[in-house]
């Protein structure tokens, strides 16, 4: 009996696998569609006060991002080892990396925002890296998520800047040592650049993740498309395969780099809120 069961298990696994593979080859318009990876699908429909706040695949990966990174950071440091284990030293390295980032750009006064900068960096980094798994959803590839994080930062900068410096915060828009004639122009430019900050902050992250994943998908899509053309196609598919491998490495770099850029820009904007006169 157990033997039969095992046999049937193998068989059923094959049965499941084959339609999936066939589907991939036959319905290329769907599988190769580089946009479908950004679709949001409801896992648990939920509606509160007329708003659709369903638990979606995006929410699932937010929970996974938070769960995995919090579990990693908390569990690896639970030993409180004087001599760190490998995993504990990873947590310490992330801590010291972000701490030095913030201290160098915003000074020791900026360290009160350390939990926020650290959370942003780790959240974005882990979310981006999660997106590198095939079939995983990339939560940072949606403008609303990156915009929410960017507005959180800029909102904090504005609120803290006015709370700490009062109207002195407006000195941010009035650089010292500018001749009076140029002053209106400079102030206008400064205001424009300040307004564009949340947009550039959110669009940079969003566009990088979106474009990277689309490019990866397009190049990967060439491989099955060419493979169907027979021997010449299979040989020709080597090129996009190579591109896909190279792009995957590049995307890992981008995943880290974008989290880093977001964190360092956050630090610099917080520095503006702490020391507005420049």
């Amino acid at each position: 009996m157990p033997n039969d069961l095992r046999m049937s298990n193998i068989f059923s696994a094959k049965v499941i696998f084959r339609p999936c593979r066939l589907r991939f080859e036959d319905e290329t318009p769907v599988a190769d569609d580089p946009i479908s990876q950004f679709n949001i699908s409801k896992i648990l429909p939920l509606e509160v006060a007329g708003y659709d706040i369903s638990f979606t695949n995006s929410a699932l990966f937010m929970v996974a991002t938070v769960g995995v990174s919090a579990a990693f950071l908390i569990m690896t440091t639970s030993g409180r080892g004087l001599i760190p284990t490998r995993m504990q030293s990873i947590s310490e390295m992330i801590y010291e990396f972000v701490a030095s980032l913030l201290r160098e750009s915003a000074g020791s006064e900026g360290m009160k925002f350390f939990p926020l900068v650290f959370s942003l960096f780790v959240f974005i980094l882990v979310a981006n890296l999660f997106g590198m798994f095939p079939y995983f959803f990339t939560i940072t590839s949606h403008i609303i998520v990156t915009a929410a994080l960017a507005f959180l930062v800029i909102g904090l900068v504005i609120v803290y800047g006015f709370w700490k410096n009062g109207l002195g915060f407006l000195k941010l828009f009035v650089p010292s040592g500018v001749p009076g004639v140029l002053m209106p122009l400079i102030v206008a430019i400064e205001i424009m650049s300040f307004i564009s900050r949340p947009i550039s902050l959110s669009v940079r992250l969003f566009a990088n993740m979106l474009a990277g994943h689309i490019t990866l998908k397009v190049f990967a899509g060439f491989i099955p498309m060419l493979s169907k053309l027979g021997f010449v196609g299979v040989v020709g598919a080597i090129l996009p395969l190579g591109f896909t491998v190279a792009l995957t490495a590049l995307e890992f770099l981008v995943a880290f780099l974008q989290a880093y850029v977001f964190a360092i820009l956050t630090c610099m904007y917080l520095n503006d809120a702490i020391h507005p006169s420049h």
Binding site: D52, I53, F55, V63, V66, A70, I74, S119, V122, V145
Partner: peptide, 21 residues
């Protein structure tokens, strides 16, 4: 999908911030 994403981002990121800090 914006409302759902914002709500879940607020919940998860808020929880993450609390756990971190």
């Amino acid at each position: 999908s914006f409302a759902s994403q914002l709500v879940w981002l607020a919940i998860t990121f808020g929880l993450f911030y609390l756990l971190m800090s």
